[in-house]
Design a protein around this nucleic acid. Sequence first.
DNA 1: AATGAATGAGTGTTCATTCAT
DNA 2: AATGAATGAACACTCATTCAT
Lengths: 210, 210, 210, 210
Amino acid sequence: MQSTKARTRDAEATKARILAAAKIEFARLGLGGARVDEIAEKAEANKRMIYHYFGNKEDLFTAVLEDAYLDIRTAEQELQLDELPPDEGMVTLIKFTWDYYLDHPEFITLVNSANLHKGKHLEKSDKLKTASRRYIATIQSLLDRGVEAGVFRSGIDAGQLNITIAAIGYYYLTNRFSGTILFERDYMTKEALDNRLAFNIDTIMRVVAA
Amino acid sequence: MQSTKARTRDAEATKARILAAAKIEFARLGLGGARVDEIAEKAEANKRMIYHYFGNKEDLFTAVLEDAYLDIRTAEQELQLDELPPDEGMVTLIKFTWDYYLDHPEFITLVNSANLHKGKHLEKSDKLKTASRRYIATIQSLLDRGVEAGVFRSGIDAGQLNITIAAIGYYYLTNRFSGTILFERDYMTKEALDNRLAFNIDTIMRVVAA
Amino acid sequence: MQSTKARTRDAEATKARILAAAKIEFARLGLGGARVDEIAEKAEANKRMIYHYFGNKEDLFTAVLEDAYLDIRTAEQELQLDELPPDEGMVTLIKFTWDYYLDHPEFITLVNSANLHKGKHLEKSDKLKTASRRYIATIQSLLDRGVEAGVFRSGIDAGQLNITIAAIGYYYLTNRFSGTILFERDYMTKEALDNRLAFNIDTIMRVVAA
Amino acid sequence: MQSTKARTRDAEATKARILAAAKIEFARLGLGGARVDEIAEKAEANKRMIYHYFGNKEDLFTAVLEDAYLDIRTAEQELQLDELPPDEGMVTLIKFTWDYYLDHPEFITLVNSANLHKGKHLEKSDKLKTASRRYIATIQSLLDRGVEAGVFRSGIDAGQLNITIAAIGYYYLTNRFSGTILFERDYMTKEALDNRLAFNIDTIMRVVAA
DNA sequence: AATGAATGAGTGTTCATTCAT
DNA sequence: AATGAATGAACACTCATTCAT
């Protein structure tokens, strides 16, 4: 019966709508601040469906987190840095990281929320661990090729570099409100953003330079 | 003992205990997650006193934030970087920032919370703006003296450098849970912490090097 | 019994029970004095349902007021005064007003509460304005027919007369406690009530007499 | 010592300020709605003084009520209706009642509040009973003199007439908000007030006319 | 006489979750 | 698969009142 198929498809669609709505709400208000009612409404789904598909609010948050992390790790993989010269690859990675944060501001608040809760929602996900391992490997390979090519100095810890690349973009954006207010300069004008990206590229390239 | 009773009728002391307890709770659970009841209990104060002294939960959060920011800005000022040679001053600043974050993990979560709420609790505080301005001026003067002494290159934006110095420590610590889990290495062992600090000093010194 | 359970899942019935319980409580204790908990309990409903169906306490009060006013205006309309001779119609109206107040003591306290709050809960209701207009028109037509029949004098303002008819019953009943205590005579014995009604009929008939 | 005297006077003044502030607040918000804090603040007195002088909130309400009633009864007595011709005396009484309500809107809401609480705050006051008795006697004497003079008919119950005189003014004013909104005409313009007073004088004079 | 500090018991309101269909 | 009705526990906040000086 085609109706069965339709129903199955609807189920998937409902689940996807809930996940999308939940991501927005959790990012906007945190785990504690987001409202199950609001998520259901924005998902155009019945509240009961959330419990049916995701168990409870915390498990929904876990699902949202996993989805968010897999998205960025997938996008990173699609960059195919291996096919670029190492220095070009490094700049591409810095730019990508920056642009991803800019285009997905929800990712940053979700990660903050995950850490406010001491990461306990991430613990079960082996998928994320695997993806993370592969990601570090990519950076390591970039560094190795750079050393080989004579453009990067040797002895750089890929893990630390990865953290720094993320940090200098992430911190600027997550703290853009306090920054804008306390330092009395708008962090989000096009000029300010361009300046920051340039400063960050310069920073990393000086750090890795041979 | 009468001294006990006397203490419970000391307005300033009560206010201080509330502020301290609130800082801990807001840092631990965020604005939305912290409970007024819990804060009162931990402050060994009556809940009513919170409203009497601070108006409401949000205003208490504002007071906590202001207190937290003033504390770090005051501590920075006490470093008296002006009296050190520029390169030594820079290292001192990086170390101080890192140590302050380590010793005051509540500061990081409070700042995250403030930004989750788009910084609106910071807006009214002119005191913080003044302190922030003075802080940037300190870094600028450090850079200027470094250029003069020939140890730093010229043209470095003090604001951007400040952000980067904060970022590379802050990000590591705020995301230590997700990092520890996803990258499967403990971020908080003494060795890991020492490594990170060394990496950060190296990073900044390469960035400012003449 | 399943019927019991069924009833507890009947939205309309729950809503009606809440409205009825709220009317009693608001009449008894005023808007400020009534307790949402008590209303819920007396309605055999969950407190949460009050907020679900009525929004909040003030809106529930508004709903109660509207319901109370519509009830008396509907009952008045059902008198069909147009089908009676004008003098008989006038007496019928006076008696009805008196009896309605006696049978619905909650109406009086609700109107008092509405006015204590400067009528703001009535403002939105166009239904009540329409019903009120129709009511005044009824009195006007009674007066007109009386003048035509030579039993009433002309020139009587229907609005003022309406107020007086209401006033002489309403005041007696709303202030029956202070009256009984200060004037040391029981306002609520059958004899006292009969006397008052007779006095009121006499008063109005003298006022409208040709 | 004069300082003793000064202190005594301050005590009386404080008490008076509390009473005045309480009258305003109870009139504005009812017994349940008024706030002890607010009364203390508006009385420019310490909250503790309220408890010192009046015992508790309910007793303060009782004191306010007694004060309010004594005020109108005293003012009525000062009219010296006995010295006027009966018909003139009657008009004077009607006008006085109306004007007093207009000038002391707090009296009306206080009486409403007293009756919402079933008059229990009035029960203890013998002073008020005496004053009320004297007031009815005044009206009775007015009626008697009118009958004697041939201007009033005989057989009118002074108690009922008193109620009606009060009712037709009181009801109009206490329900001015609902009236203005539902009947869509402003009850409080000078013209509307003049019209109502004229209507009321006309009503009573027709009722008592020989 | 006067006061600022403190409190316990409640207020209206909200929430994540389960029930019944 | 989907839904509207219902709930208990908790939440921020308030209040009349008392304490300590």
